[in-house]
Simulated assay, not measured.
Amino acid sequence: MQITPHLNTLKSAALVAAMTLAVLLNCERARADDIQTAIFAGGCFWCVEADFDKVDGVKETVSGYTGGDVKNPSYKQVTRGGTGHYEAVRITFDADTVSYRRLVDLFFRSVDPTDAGGQFCDRGESYRTAVFALDPAQAQAAKAAKAEARAELGQEIVTPILDAGTFWKAEDYHQNYYQRDDRVLTRFGWIPMSKAYDRYRDACGRDQRVRQLWGADAPFVKTGS
């Protein structure tokens, strides 16, 4: 007669544990649903990656190639031209923290969207700008952001809104280039990639041109650029 209450207590505890686990699993599923992807081409993918890694809510950035016809292209193939690919960055973000529309707005103000021939010192088809929309909602948000950017600048925006296709990850040495300590040979001698990146960005005039276009609305321009 004394066993029954004990069994009831164990059953109740098991039920509570099961319900708690179910709630946690549902929360995890809901959380996973908030993780989304954006793909932008903004000239040199090192720079786009460095910019968007600073945004609160961005979980990961990956440099790669998209928009062309060649499967798994190499950096040399893409930059030589003829593949149709853009240098692009795939951004994984938490939509609870930062919206897709916010990311597109930041993107337009981090590039020269009036330049159809490349970006800054990098010329050619692989350095053109583009927004690659993964679904109709992203396309709609990107078109609205483009219209707002055009109104703000008072100039034609040549950056197209394209349907996303296959994204090919770039070679490992391109990933997080701006943070790497591997040494590379430059006209300044053997220096870490991170320093080579800083000197490339300054020499290319990226921040200077973005500041000229967007002024105080340029989100990633270094102070003093």
Rank of each mutant, 00 (worst) to 15 (best):
R128C: 03
R128F: 05
T129K: 05
T129R: 01
A130K: 01
V131R: 02
F132L: 13
F132E: 02
A133Y: 00
A133T: 07
A133V: 03
A133L: 05
D135F: 11
D135T: 04
D135G: 15
D135P: 10
P136D: 12
P136K: 15
A137N: 13
Q138E: 01
A139P: 04
Q140C: 13
A141S: 14
A141E: 06
A141V: 11
A142K: 08
A142R: 03
A142T: 03
A144I: 13
A147Y: 10
E148D: 14
E148F: 02
A149C: 05
R150I: 08
R150C: 10
E152F: 12
G154H: 00
Q155R: 14
E156I: 08
I157M: 08
I157V: 09
I157T: 02
T159A: 03
I161P: 06
I161H: 01
I161N: 04
I161D: 04
L162R: 13
L162S: 09
D163C: 06
A164I: 07
A164N: 06
G165Q: 10
F167S: 03
E171Y: 05
D172T: 09
Y173A: 09
Y173I: 06
H174P: 02
H174Y: 09
H174G: 11
Q175I: 05
Y177W: 05
Y177M: 07
Y178C: 12
Y178D: 14
Q179C: 14
Q179L: 15
